[in-house]
Simulated assay, not measured.
Amino acid sequence: MHLHLLQHSPHHGPARIADWLDSMGHSHTVFHLYAGEAPPDLADCDALIALDGAMNIDDVATHPWLKRERKLIGRALDGNKPLLGIGMGARLIAAELGATVGRGTFAEVGWHEVTLAPESPFDLPEQFTAFMWHGDVFALPDDALPLGGSPVSPVQGFAWDAGRALGLLCHIEVTRAGVAELLDCEERPKGSDASPHVQAREAILADTSRFDRLAPLLDRLLSQWLRSTPA
């Protein structure tokens, strides 16, 4: 399969997703929308991934490419190709499905527990620790199933159209080097200063094994997601 990846920030890259795609024999192209690259043609890929980013999904005045990207995501939802969104990418998908997207009660930054929803169509652990980097959240779209939630953000993900479209608020694709770069180069999500659910840089990076444990989790999720659409 060939996948198109939409990148919204220099510090929110594919991370371990790129390695997984290579290891599984899939090819991929990354489109750096923040650097002026145009959104791709959906016909040229077998699946689409929209990565995280710091901007508001409605800020088309500052980021005019967002309008084209939202149309691209809408076409992907109307088609039959797998679609994955992470962070901002998930918020874009949720918005295109008519769900409310806005500021959460508290920002979440660092490592937090996610409890799998009983209705989740994905075979994942009942509880797992994921990396969080968000102030904005989304409601569960109509006709979607919840993947799971944290105490602060009850909807940490959703699956739509039998799992063909998947949105993740949390991050299971990150590496230690990528998170260190994010912490050094990006402002914390809005609301971080007043949130009790934001961890310090030292605490986030202290345990390397936390990053290592994400690899099999990502493998399970991506494998099931790409199998969700019949050939």
Rank of each mutant, 00 (worst) to 15 (best):
H4A: 15
S9W: 02
H11R: 04
G13K: 02
A15W: 09
R16L: 10
D19K: 05
W20D: 06
S23D: 10
M24R: 11
H26E: 11
H26S: 05
H28W: 13
H28M: 13
T29A: 09
F31L: 14
G36S: 06
G36P: 11
E37H: 08
A43M: 09
D44K: 12
C45Q: 06
A47M: 11
I49K: 00
I49D: 00
A50P: 02
A50L: 09
L51D: 00
G53M: 06
H63V: 10
E69S: 04
L72Q: 02
I73H: 00
A76S: 04
A76R: 00
L77T: 08
N80C: 15
N80M: 10
K81D: 08
L83W: 00
L83N: 00
L84R: 00
G87E: 01
R91V: 06
L92N: 03
I93A: 01
A95C: 09
L97V: 12
G98N: 08
A99R: 01
G102A: 12
R103D: 07
R103A: 04
F106G: 07
A107M: 14
A107R: 14
A107F: 12
E108N: 08
V109N: 06
E119R: 07
S120L: 07
P121E: 05
P125Y: 05
H134A: 06
A139W: 01
L140H: 02
P141M: 05
D143N: 15
G149C: 07
S150N: 11
P151M: 12
V152G: 05
G157S: 05
F158S: 03
G163F: 04
L168V: 14
I172V: 15
E173K: 10
E173D: 12
V179I: 05
E181W: 04
L183P: 06
L183D: 09
D184Y: 04
C185Y: 12
E186Y: 07
E187Y: 09
E187S: 09
K190N: 11
G191I: 02
S195Q: 12
V198P: 07
V198C: 10
A200L: 14
E202M: 09
A203S: 13
A203K: 15
A206W: 07
S209E: 12
L218G: 00
L222G: 00
L222A: 01
L222T: 13
S223Q: 10
W225D: 00
R227M: 15
S228R: 03
T229Y: 08
P230M: 11
P230H: 09
A231F: 14
